Simulated scan of single mutants.
Amino acid sequence: MTDLTTRWLGLDLHSPLVVGASPLTDDLDALKACVDAGAGAVVMHSLFEEQLIAEQMAAHRFIDSRINTDAEARSFFPESEVFAMGSSSYLKRLEQLQSSLDVPVIASLNGISPGGWTQHARELEDAGASAIELNLYDLATDPSDTATTLEQRQLEVVGSVVEQVSIPVSIKLSPFYSALPAFVAGVEAAGARGLVLFNRFYQPTMDLDELELSREVVLSTSAELPVRLHAMAMLFNRTTLEMAASGGVHTGDDAAKAILSGATAVQVVSALLAEGPSALARITDEMNQRLTTMGYTSLIEARGALSLDNAPNAQTWERLNYARLLQGWQSSGRTS
């Protein structure tokens, strides 16, 4: 059997399979079942920049309200909602998970602009987070906001969070960068330790009957995996950042492909939401059997074996292959 132990973000994991950020964070029993089924680590759902800014504003409102209060009215306090803290419940949950689970627990921050909210990263470290996953997603809607300014702003966020903590910081990216290797180089220079490729977005759709926008949770399929494989295969040996695949992993073969492309860890969410924690045991067994059949005794041997540098037909990763693929499909269609 293949040795599935791995080292991700400086953390020793008994399995590369990680429970990705999801609503499962709110179900301790489900997370315990995931760990029993083979999860090597757990990522909490994100704490959003907007929540943290709201917390800061609540504190300001509390202070301002005291200015205009009669000095003799010592028993007066504003309504409790005024200073309800956005991070307090998250920190309590983090502490609970760290004390209840026998695997590393990674906290998650979601932000797009530099600011005081990044100081909360230190609170996450103090609460016991093994690492922090920083989720970057900045949708450009202003025509004056260029790719350069957007990416520079994101790199400033990365640097700001990294400066706050001594624990590793991993950056979760979208697949929409025009020059991914260059941006990744900037992320590495800013002090990050790892990458998560890629984020999935629950984009709004249209309800034509009600003539309004609506959001629906659409689970991933294995068809979404290739864009992750391509990015990791391209980046392998071109960055020191440790990579985790996220999105489209539903089978052991999916997980094996991610490892062979260069992943150190493989995050799973949709399969868990669809099947429950038992999906992790199934994926683990399937992955182990596949890698063992291929002759690999450890993940270290398998990692990056089919990357851009190591694949026997590396040109398949390149753009020219798209034209060849279409030509082959057209030829097949004419002869059928």
Rank of each mutant, 00 (worst) to 15 (best):
S113Y: 15
A33Q: 10
A140S: 14
Q119T: 15
L31M: 05
L52C: 06
T141F: 10
E133Q: 11
A39W: 00
N68V: 13
L4D: 00
G38N: 01
A107F: 04
R7H: 07
T141H: 13
F77N: 14
V18A: 02
D70M: 05
I53F: 13
G115L: 07
L139N: 08
E125C: 11
F77H: 12
L52T: 06
E125F: 07
P78M: 03
G116T: 15
P104T: 04
L97C: 04
V103A: 03
A127Y: 08
Q56K: 14
A121S: 12
V42N: 01
L52V: 06
T141D: 07
Q98V: 15
E133K: 02
C34N: 00
A30E: 11
E50R: 12
L31V: 08
I106L: 05
A127Q: 09
L94A: 06
A37I: 04
E95T: 12
E133V: 09
S15T: 04
R61I: 00
A33G: 00
V82Y: 03
D29L: 11
A107G: 13
M57P: 08
G128T: 09
L28Y: 06
D27H: 10
L124H: 05
I112D: 13
V19N: 03
L109G: 06
Q96L: 15
A84Q: 15
G10N: 01
S99F: 09
H14D: 12
F62K: 08
L31E: 08
H60V: 15
L97G: 07
N68F: 13
D29I: 13
S22T: 08
F76W: 14
A121F: 08
R7Q: 10
Q56C: 12
Q51W: 04
A21V: 03
D27S: 11
D12V: 04
S22N: 05
E55H: 12
E55L: 12
W8R: 01
S15L: 03
D29G: 08
H60D: 11
R61E: 08
L91F: 09
Q51S: 13
F76L: 13
V82M: 11
L4G: 01
S108D: 09
L9R: 04
A39P: 00
A71H: 03
D70S: 09
T118W: 09
F77K: 11
N135S: 05
W117S: 04
V35F: 01
E72T: 12
L13M: 02
L28K: 06
E81D: 15
E79S: 15
L97F: 02
